[in-house]
């Protein structure tokens, strides 16, 4: 299954791109499994995702916990804790 990944703030800077399309391996079923999978793709991903606990995620623009199934989400966002306001 192909999904669009979007990255923000220092996650975007460390990975070196704002978005990409990837094919999800069948064993990747949750947000947490996706983060663990991405961290194996290269140094830049490892640098961005080395502390998985601080990474926040959204599935199709809705906040999602790490144990949440990705399901049929088309856009998955990964980013640091938010600092708006």
């Amino acid at each position: 299954m192909s999904v669009r990944l979007v990255y923000f703030a220092w996650v975007r800077e460390r990975i070196g791109k704002g978005s990409e399309e990837i094919d999800l391996p069948p064993e990747v079923k949750t947000v947490g499994e996706l983060i663990a999978h991405l961290a194996t793709l290269g140094e830049e991903y490892e640098a961005a995702l080395q502390v998985p606990g601080v990474i926040r995620a959204a599935l199709d623009e809705e906040h999602a916990d790490h144990d949440e199934p990705i399901g049929g989400a088309r856009e998955i966002a990964l980013f640091p804790p938010m600092t708006g306001g």
Binding site: F8, A9, A77, F79, P81, T83, G84
Partner: peptide
Amino acid sequence: LMDYLKTDAPFWKKEHLKDGGTGEWVSA
């Protein structure tokens, strides 16, 4: 609204320093 916005709205702040240096991302 402000209390929830601070932690739930997807915005991130990056500092630009007066001395021209590259700033840090503001921590939550």
